[in-house]
Design a protein around this nucleic acid. Structure first.
Lengths: 197, 197
DNA sequence: GACAAATGCTACGGGGTCGAAGTAATTTGC
DNA sequence: GCAAATTACTTCGACCCCGTAGCATTTGTC
């Protein structure tokens, strides 16, 4: 769907309504959610338009991009599921489609027969890079905001995500440093269970 | 799906990869998009869990909440489509379901036979308010961040959305001031066409 | 007033996603 | 060393969303 401007700023309008009918804390929280929602819609729309040009949905692109990026040419499906927060059944479907298009290949895990690895093909790598290049030029480089404000925004959202336990704050730094160590893990799971309900 | 922490901060990890393989502008833009995406996932997940308790999807809740909020008890389907950025066919579907549940009623527009109004029922109002109350307590009031940071975040996102032409910046203020004037408009459309491609 | 264009909505059909249940392999506990 | 619990993935079925095409009405143009 093409993107037409809404007739007014829905976030600000809602916020005023909330302030009248509910309490200020709820109003600011609602405003955060609504602002994130509408920003997401704005951006995902542009992203979808690009990935579609390359024959991919965003979900499929995302998986392919990680496979293309990672030092290891293959990742376990469960790693994909946990990291990209895609339900297992959806990962299965995504890999099915990518396999149909010969962008990815299923490979048995060397030491754990339960586990399946997704391995990117040469063709897949080519498609991923072309799509990324296109995304960079068409969307990412022309997101609004100054460089300084982009940084501020990303930091605020990082804090929001950290507080919401969106990622494992304790382990994150260590994992990011050792970028190469993501794939081959025989166990694949975090060694200490996070206490999420 | 329950929400388990990802093993690391995917935004930061991606940003580093981008800085190595692509240019800094693309990296910061990608980080903005990814941060918005993951924040959206985090929040929409919580919101969905709440609305489901009340027998609604988020899309249906959103429509119902606007109907419950607006001074006018009815809105045109096209207004809903434009404002909440929901494709017309989807609005039809949403109203169908809400009608099935007796939360909303279709009413012919008094002066334009093409147009249909959605009017909230007493039952609909009750469900909407209960769901909103629940959302406030369960999600909105406990979004992270200090009040100051929430404001800063919402402002940054407003700028992002404005630059992306997510809403009609010129008219927005005027429309928001006259909150009551949204519904009954016989024409329903903006009087000057925004120059969107 | 008549015809073309624009607007508002709906019917149809398909694609993407995902919860739940099932299968297979591995790890844990005793 | 074996049963129970856990982990990894897939199958199935369903729901939600939405692009497309189409119909009805209104508006614009002459």
């Amino acid at each position: 769907m093409g993107f037409n401007a809404a007739p007014f700023d829905v976030v600000e309008a809602s916020r005023r309504v909330w302030l009248q009918r509910w309490n200020p804390e709820a109003a600011s929280g609602m405003a955060v959610f609504t602002a994130v929602l509408r920003s997401y819609q704005l951006l995902i729309d542009q992203v979808n338009a690009v990935t579609r040009r390359h024959g991919l949905t965003f979900a499929r692109y995302q998986v392919l991009a990680w496979l293309a990026t990672d030092p290891e040419p293959s990742l376990t499906l469960s790693w994909i599921s946990n990291t990209l927060r895609i339900p297992p059944a959806t990962v299965t479907d995504i890999i099915d489609r990518l396999e149909d298009d010969k962008l990815v290949r299923r490979v048995p895990h060397p030491s754990d027969a339960r586990t399946t690895l997704a391995e990117i093909t040469a063709r897949g790598r080519k498609v991923a890079d072309a799509a990324t290049e296109d995304l960079n030029v068409t969307v990412y480089e022309s997101v609004g905001l100054s460089e300084r404000k982009r940084t501020a925004l990303v930091e605020l959202l990082a804090e929001l995500r950290a507080e919401g336990n969106e990622f494992d704050v304790d382990q994150s730094r260590a994992v990011i440093e050792g970028v190469g160590s993501r794939a081959g893990r025989p166990k694949g799971g975090p060694e200490d269970e996070a206490d999420v309900a």
